[in-house]
Amino acid sequence: MGWFFTKTGRYTVKSGYAIAQQALEANSPNFFGPDTQRLQAQVWKVQYTQKLQHFIWQALTGCIAVGDRLRSRGMQIDPQCMWCGMATETVNHTLFEFPPARQVWALSPIPTAPT
């Protein structure tokens, strides 16, 4: 007996996850939007702490526990941002649109668009 999805023939969690993702992608409708797969691959090459690398990877893959994500997993919660109430709490809102996050970005040395 062997696992045909690796060169060694041994099962790994990584190979099992890859097969599960391929099956999901084959059954899901096409997604039109920014492709983050190349960014996800580059995360592990960034010279920062592993904690920061992991956080960036979670943000890119949508694994951060925000209202919109929790609701999509069946939790009965209000997806609105509980702090500002201005928008649905998504990863994008939490990291870039939320007023305190915008202040942090404005004070950081990373260039941002004026709008």
Rank of each mutant, 00 (worst) to 15 (best):
W105K: 01
Q103E: 12
W57M: 01
G67N: 04
R73N: 08
L39H: 14
Y17R: 11
K51H: 09
P114L: 01
Q37P: 00
D78H: 09
V66Y: 10
T6Q: 12
V13S: 15
N30M: 08
M1C: 12
L107D: 13
Q103Y: 03
Q50Y: 13
F4E: 06
Q47K: 15
Q58W: 01
V104R: 03
C84S: 04
P79G: 12
L95K: 02
R10L: 10
L95C: 06
D35Q: 15
R102P: 05
M82W: 14
F55R: 07
D35I: 04
Q80P: 00
D68C: 07
Q47A: 12
S72G: 00
T6A: 06
I19E: 13
V104I: 08
P114T: 01
T112N: 02
G9Y: 01
Q80L: 05
V43S: 10
F5M: 10
A41G: 09
A41E: 14
R10N: 07
S28Q: 12
T49I: 08
Y17K: 05
R71W: 13
R73V: 01
T115R: 01
T90P: 02
M1I: 06
T61D: 13
R38A: 15
K45S: 12
E97Q: 08
C63L: 13
I110G: 00
T8G: 06
T8F: 00
D35P: 06
F31E: 15
W44D: 07
H54N: 15
P34M: 13
L107G: 10
Q80D: 10
V91M: 12
P100N: 02
T115Y: 02
E97L: 04
Q22K: 10
A113M: 02
A101R: 00
